[in-house]
Simulated scan of single mutants.
Amino acid sequence: MKAVVHADKAGLFGLAVRDMEELQPKAGEVRVKLKTAGLNHRDLFVLVRHKPTDPPLIIGSDGAGVVDAVGEGVTGVKAGDKVVINPGLGWKDKTDAPPQGFEILGLPFHGTFAEQVVIPAENVAPKPEHLSWEEAGVLSLAALTAYRALFTQGQVREGMKVLIPGIGSGVATFLLQFAKAAGATVYVTSRSVEKCQKALELGADKAFDSNADWEKEFGGEKVDLVIECVGAATFNKSLQQLRPGGTIVTFGASAGDVVELNLRDFFYGQFRLYGSTMGSGEEYKEMLEFIEKHQIKPVIDRIYPLEQFQEAFNRMENAQQLGKIGFTI
């Protein structure tokens, strides 16, 4: 089968479309013939973590397709089922943190940038009918990350004021749509005028330049919840906009992972800080029910043929995207 494989060289130089051996599902597993797949920032990080001396690896975490083979003992899933893939392996129940052994598809195990993928049967779910194949293929990792950060960790409720710095990524666009569907007032920032405008079209109540004076933009108003995925570049500015007793949830550090924190301001503010990463199988099911109830769709940036992976990676690496980048297979 054809697949995008990382091998022999570091970074993007190690990526190539190769012929790989077709895999067979073992007991408890299913094989999915992929129609579409989604690109994530994680795939850029994998190119750093996977070394040239490691065995060749099919990368990619997100995907959707049709089950074409099932292993021994599999029930509830059959050949011909249209499915989306939960990339989180080994995290079934909603817990405070992932269990030991939790992994994400695409490293260390072969991923979705291929004609087929073999995964545990518990990691597939029926494709939401309101989603196209392109939308279904880019859904899972970003939507699950957004769902856990916003609902499980952030405990968002109707009437809350939510700040999402750095609108533009797939996760951030899901955060915006989810928070609005939950009845929150949502503020976003971006250095891009185009991304701010798109956020307003998606329902944001206010969008402003990340480089602006945030205190002035808010006019003294404070928020109940901040979902931080930018990192050091915005973290302290986000904290300054949080009301006393408010919550900040962080799951990303694309603009720096070391933050200097004034502890006195933090404890006097009675703030709550939570980390978040991906989510459990239980939360994945909740997320699918939520998007079906509210008919939420991913914001699609661009869809490429899998063979044009280089253009897709370059677009993401240069932060040009608004929403999700995907592949047709």
Rank of each mutant, 00 (worst) to 15 (best):
V258G: 00
V259S: 01
Q241P: 06
F251H: 05
I248H: 01
V223S: 11
V223A: 13
D224M: 11
L242F: 10
A253T: 04
A232T: 06
Q241V: 05
I227R: 04
E228C: 06
R243F: 12
V258Y: 01
A232M: 07
P244N: 14
L239S: 03
C229F: 05
A253V: 06
N262D: 15
P244A: 10
D224V: 10
Q240T: 13
A232W: 07
G256V: 04
F235V: 13
F235N: 13
E260C: 00
I227D: 01
G252H: 03
V226L: 14
G245D: 10
Q240I: 07
V259H: 02
G245E: 08
S238P: 12
F251Q: 01
T247Q: 01
V259Q: 00
G246A: 11
V259G: 05
V230P: 03
V259K: 02
V223W: 12
L242G: 13
G231M: 04
T250C: 11
Q241D: 09
E228N: 10
Q240C: 14
V249K: 01
N236V: 13
F235R: 12
K237A: 14
S254M: 15
G256E: 08
V226R: 04
A232C: 01
A232P: 04
V258A: 05
V259Y: 06
V223I: 14
A233C: 09
V249C: 00
E228F: 02
N262Y: 00
R243K: 15
G245W: 10
L242E: 08
I227K: 05
L239C: 04
F251W: 03
R243C: 13
E228P: 06
T234I: 13
E228S: 02
E260F: 03
T250D: 04
T250E: 05
G246Y: 07
R243M: 15
P244V: 10
Q241S: 13
I248L: 13
V259C: 01
F251N: 03
N236S: 09
S254V: 15
I227H: 03
G256L: 02
K237C: 11
A233V: 12
S238H: 12
V249D: 00
G231E: 07
G245Q: 09
G252Y: 00
N236W: 09
V223C: 09
N262H: 02
F251S: 03
V259A: 01
